[in-house]
């Protein structure tokens, strides 16, 4: 894309990655549950890539990072009814 928005700059990308990972861990979300939700709102990355992204090892396309953020927000707003001892 030639009309790359500000948040697609590399510096923003690495900040965003760290931020998403921290929020994911802070909210005690389950990776598979998060990935499934992200898939449901149009996410294209697979679970492995999402895992890598949340742990600061992989980058994702800007649109995908935004969807991960949305998934974290919407899923933690729902609360997670987990089975025993999750």
């Amino acid at each position: 894309m030639n009309d790359r928005p500000k948040w697609a700059e590399p510096s923003w990308n690495s900040e965003q990655r760290k931020h998403a990972g921290e929020r994911y861990r802070g909210r005690n979300l389950n990776l598979s549950r998060l990935w499934t939700y992200y898939l449901g709102i149009g996410g294209d990355a697979d679970e492995f890539a999402l895992d890598g992204y949340l742990n600061g090892l992989l980058g994702l396309a800007p649109g995908q990072m935004r969807l991960v953020d949305t998934a974290i927000d919407e899923l933690s707003a729902d609360g997670q009814p987990g089975p025993v001892g999750q």
Binding site: S32, R33, T36, G40, I41, P83
Partner: peptide
């Protein structure tokens, strides 16, 4: 029972994801 329940949850979540993704797409 826990394994069955986890699989059932995963299945339900995937079904919900498919429905949701169709709408969003």
């Amino acid at each position: 029972a826990l394994k069955i329940s986890q699989l059932r949850d995963a299945r339900d979540n995937l079904t919900a994801a498919l429905q949701s993704r169709t709408t969003i797409d």
